[in-house]
Design a protein around this nucleic acid. Structure first.
Length: 265
DNA sequence: GATGTGTCTTGGGAGGTTAA
DNA sequence: TTAACCTCCCAAGACACATC
């Protein structure tokens, strides 16, 4: 999948031997994922979800989610993800005469899929596509099989898969307060709030009387200070939690803001 | 004309990397 | 944890265009 989300016909096989946290928090395309071994934890704006070996789930595009992978008893975390790009879904919808129904239900960012022999067999059949060199057309057929299964077993997801609209204009203040911890760039924040980058910055200045980056960093540092001081957490545990990617830079920014290093408060 | 929005340019600084 | 260095993203401003 490319990061623009233009054409993401892709099956991804992941393998980690140590605890690993995602650096990218923006979901570009709808996907289904099956956990083979270990545990996958999702940090969403309002909740945490975790999936263990043998469980599968659907992730909605244009969502904000931070994932952490924990190796299982064998020392490995393994998963298979299938990403459905917009172009592919449009083509699939046209080919199969699929139309959105009127009774639209709100679908969360992550939906657990019911345990199902067909779905399990589907995921079990995918590794051979990694091991063998197969043509793109064969992979496309396999991915269409995945969509067909998904809609058959979870018809409530059909409307989401066939919804090709982009996010509408939302309450910027409420959105930012809920999501500032997610590590995504300003363009994506602008997109998710239904604005161009220029309008996003202007609206932001009107509401928060600060530039987006300055405000986001200050919020993250205040949260970090709270977690260290009130919850007794260590700086090395906190910096990723609040959206920083690098401990040394977190330490530098913290000291610059509060006058003391994070380990001395 | 007023207002809102998009695009482009440029300099500064935030953030990542590395070493100590 | 700090410091030095480097890269590249963002803020800010100017201008163009669309809509009312």
């Amino acid at each position: 999948m490319d990061k623009t989300g233009n054409d993401e016909r892709r099956i991804l096989f992941a393998c980690y031997t140590a605890k690993s946290r995602s650096t990218e928090n923006f979901v570009h395309a709808h996907s289904i994922c099956y956990v083979q071994t270990g545990i996958l934890e999702f940090q969403l704006p309002d909740t945490k979800l975790s999936f263990k070996a043998g469980e599968s789930f659907f992730v909605k595009r244009n969502s904000l989610a931070r994932t952490t992978k924990y190796p299982g008893e064998g020392g490995e975390f393994r998963s298979i993800s299938v990403f459905f790009g917009q172009e592919m879904l449009q083509h699939f919808g046209q080919e199969n005469n699929l139309v959105k129904s009127n009774n639209f239900t709100n679908i969360p960012a992550v939906t657990q899929l019911r345990s199902d022999r067909l779905l399990k067999n589907y995921f079990d059949s995918l590794p051979v596509y990694e091991e063998e060199s197969v043509s793109q057309s064969l992979i496309s057929i396999k991915m269409e099989e995945g969509i067909t299964l998904l809609i058959a077993r979870h018809p409530e997801l059909k409307n989401v898969l066939l919804d090709f609209s982009e996010p509408g204009k939302v309450d910027l203040e409420e959105f930012m307060v809920r999501n500032y911890k997610f590590n995504v760039d300003l363009k994506k924040f602008a997109h998710l709030t239904g604005r161009s980058l220029a309008t996003f910055k202007r609206d932001f200045e009107k509401i928060f009387h600060s530039s987006p980056n300055r405000w986001i960093q200050q919020k993250r540092l205040e949260e970090a200070k709270f977690l260290i001081k009130e919850k007794g957490m260590k700086p090395s545990e906190v910096y990723l939690e609040v959206g920083f990617e690098d401990l040394s830079h977190f330490s530098f920014a913290f000291k610059k803001s509060f006058g003391v290093a994070p380990s001395f408060i």
